[in-house]
Amino acid sequence: MLKLIQNEWVKIWKQKSTLLMMVLVILMVFAAGGLMKYFDSKEPPAKSDWKQELQAENKNLKQNLEQMDMAAPSAIEYQKKQIAINEYRIKHDLAPDQERTVWTFLRDSTDFISFAGLFVIIVAAGIVAHEFSWGTIKILLIKPYKRWKVLLSKYLSVNLFFLLMLAVVFVTAGITGFVLFGSGEAANNVHLAYVDGKVVEQNLFFYLVKTYALNSLSVYMLVTMAFMISAVFRNSGLAIGLSVFLLLMGGTITNLLAAKFDWAKYSLFANTNLMQYFDGIPLVEGMTMTFSITMLLIYFAIFHLLAFGIFTKRDISV
């Protein structure tokens, strides 16, 4: 099995496009850091009395809140959360992020996960389909390994590639952030979360790892889906197209649906954002962490049942 994975790994890296993807991701993080530094230097953030500002902001928020009793419950919750966090900052003398540090940059770098995920989807979409279009599936499947082992080795290789991509984004963002923005004041490096109507302090590094993991989840589900399409339809174009479309639009579509229909909560994207249970408000009322995890596991199982079920049974006639 390990040897099969090693083979897949060699094939992934011997394709020139893979190295290009890696370089693009690194450049993207560098460039984003550079641009932020450039704009900051042109327009340095004003050092004002943040306590006064937060008080003013809260006053506004509270006024809003009184006027919007007809609004969606999630919007009201969001305002309450802002107010609570602001009050906590004032009380404990914790200034909001006024300047960029390696920590804020790392937090923002979760946006690159989707970008890196795009490349992982491309690899996942090709890893089975290409063997069919190259015809090499025939030499692969007449080796003394059962088909499910071959497919599993491919899926695990995709997972490895995904982990590597995440590590590359994290490390590159860490280095870029540290070089460009420094580590900031130690006292301010906590994360404030709003849980059950209360504000709690969280360790920033732990928070970042968790953020990375949770942000990767939706991409991971799409990677799995792309892999499934690749194995079932033997078509990398379809797998890339559909997965990337959902990567870009899935969240938006689900939000639109969720505003109107209750059943939207059963869709994949309503559940991929587990951050909503830590830091915000569930998309549809009544959704819980357990519900989402169950839904994700069901989707995961369906993808793999399809991929393995069809791949191991089918006649290979390329």
Partner: peptide, 8 residues
């Protein structure tokens, strides 16, 4: 056909 990985 003898199918092989052309990039290898």
């Amino acid at each position: 056909n003898p199918e092989l990985y052309k990039f290898l």
